[in-house]
Amino acid sequence: MTGDIRALLARHLPGYQVRTIVPLGQGLDHTVSEVNGELLIRLPKAADPEAVRQEAARLAAVAELSPLPVPEVVFADAEAGVLACRKLPGRPLNEHPPPDPARLAGPLGRFLGALHAADPGRMRDLAPLDLYPAPALLQDAELDYRDVEAHVPVDQRALVERFLAEPPPGEPRSLRFCHNDLGAEHILVDAATGTVTGVIDWSDAAVTDPAHDFARLYRDLGPGFFELTAAHYPFPLTGDDRARIRFHARCALIEDLAYGLSTGPRHYADAALAHLARTFS
């Protein structure tokens, strides 16, 4: 892998001096390495040239929209399936929560407002439609829950089971361009100053229900933080919007719990269990 990265850098950044290459980890589709503490190189397990071209174009468009920093593409090698971005400062919010998380609500509310204000027709060229219906999502959540039910504290199972027995919410009034996976692990923060330093991982971005973006904040940071963020969001949120946000937060928590107890890192399950009571109450 190190040799592949050196060859890529020699081709795309001739004269660039490589001092260190540090593997950071891997997901289902990619491995990521850090070069010189300043570049992140994503290598595919199977090259998808069109996906790389689309993601590079998406990041360029998002950089124009977003009031918060997003990854800057240094080079994209579509045929090799490689994307190289400049590393943003800060640490993931789930790893290093700042002393006063409430300070993040304003920047994140304005960020979501800018994102959701984008013309969805224009963004459809850069991000797919996500039209997975709520009834199917609820069915998936119930199947996941039955797999992990034994790991849920006995006194909290009724909360989840009551949710699973309720009808799903209705469809959104409109679809908007969304990050679509705005969990705490994708929000970078300077823990010392409590400022947001970037929003990363735009691979799941889609034109979809904007409730998805609020739902991850609700799940990871709580209903109170969600309300603080909503107060800085420039568009009104109706009772129906809030019902969909709660619904997607709860489905996402069950999904994380099942993922963390099966093929994913354990910390996903630990966080899901820690946040279960407040998310389903």
Score class of each variant (00 low, 15 high):
V189I: 11
F75C: 12
E161Q: 15
E79C: 11
P14W: 06
T2Y: 01
L59F: 04
C251V: 15
P265L: 07
R162D: 11
V189F: 14
P97E: 15
A114K: 07
E34K: 08
L115R: 03
A191Y: 04
H212V: 09
I245C: 05
A272G: 11
A205K: 13
L13W: 02
G25C: 09
L261C: 04
P135Q: 12
T229V: 15
E185R: 15
T195F: 01
A136Q: 06
H267T: 14
D144E: 12
S203R: 11
A51K: 13
E34Y: 08
L237F: 10
S203T: 13
V22S: 01
G106W: 00
A117G: 14
P92G: 06
Y16T: 07
V207W: 04
V35S: 06
V73H: 02
I254C: 01
F225N: 07
L40R: 08
T229S: 04
R11Y: 02
R278W: 10
A60T: 15
P120S: 13
A105N: 00
F177K: 12
Y259I: 08
L40I: 15
P169H: 14
D190I: 03
A215D: 04
G25A: 07
P135T: 09
A272W: 15
G183P: 03
E149K: 15
A136F: 03
G37E: 09
I200R: 02
H248F: 09
E79A: 15
H96N: 03
R91N: 00
S203C: 04
A277H: 11
L65D: 05
F177C: 10
P49M: 01
L228Y: 08
A136I: 00
A76P: 07
D155A: 01
A249C: 02
R246L: 13
N180H: 15
A60Y: 05
S33A: 13
R216F: 12
D181Q: 08
G106I: 02
N94P: 00
G106P: 00
V62Y: 08
A84T: 05
Q17I: 13
T193L: 12
